[in-house]
Amino acid sequence: MRTSRGALLRYLALRLVLIIPTVFILVSVVFFFMRVIGDPITAAQGGRLSPEQLEARRESAGYNRPVLVQYGEYLSQVVRGDFGTSFSDHRRISDVLITNGAATLELVIWALLVAFLVGIPLGRLAARFHDRIADVTIRSFAILFYAAPVFFVGLLLKLLFSSKLGWLPSSGRASTDVQLALDRQGSTTHFMIVDAIRSGNGEYIADVLKHAVLPATALGLLTAGIFIRLIRINMLETMRTDFVTAARARGVPERKVVSRHAYRNALIPVVTVMGMEIALLLGSSILTETTFEWKGIGYILSQYLLARDFVAVQGLVTAIAIVVAVSSFLVDVINALVDPRVRY
């Protein structure tokens, strides 16, 4: 017992240490990729300013120094938690990360909720009725969920529920008046739903929830497709193991075999895949947020990219790299604790 705990700790320590090179590599790759285009000022203002003005601006910002010096300076900034200030609207990137990061996190949580509610029961159903109509139908849906880009699903949802039926709002996180009222409330958490609940106003809560339905469904269905496949395949595999056969032989009813034995074991990999999903969700959230004008990290990032504000882009991407590295570490920790089968 003792040795295995030691091995576990050693493994986790190694994973923790590996975060550093991972982040370092990503930050470096992004820095040099961005610099291939040129320095941020030339990229943003090139053509709009005279060469002399451009040169003066570059000099005052320190972009005329050797790239390696700037690289070292950037690294030391990042280590101190300073991601710079955006060039186009002079916002501190760390502020952008908090404000817009909360919005993205809120969207991702809603989407995961949809994914669980849709994906797990359907995956379970498909496994239960393996190779029958229900299974084939559900699997076809899973392929469609995969094949449909999240922005196309979003467009269809907007078309149907917002434009044709008029049931749900088509964009934003809340109606303008609700947004203003919540902002006026004082200390905001940036989580719209938390702010709405704190206001105690039922209408506000309903408004915020209504705005979340379509984006969460678009992003959630994408993830649900993955959950369906994962749950289905894992249940089918567990159903073939000896302990399930043994349970059946003991006379345990089939329904109980499915729910007790197969289903519970099939849930473990969902935890693991959710770790992988964080990168996918962050990537897809750029598309979802653009589709629904949901002002999260992805939305603001594509705005900065289009404005060629590469100081902001670099800061945001660096922060995303850190989030990805840390969250993949956390998933490994959870995974090691949850699943005794993980070997070290």
């Binding site: 090179p21 991972t22 990503l26 790759v29 750029i286 995303i320 990805v324």
Partner: peptide, 11 residues
């Protein structure tokens, strides 16, 4: 490659 793989591919 693992670092690149972990990063959101669209980004």
């Amino acid at each position: 490659t693992d670092a690149l793989y972990a990063f959101p591919s669209l980004l």
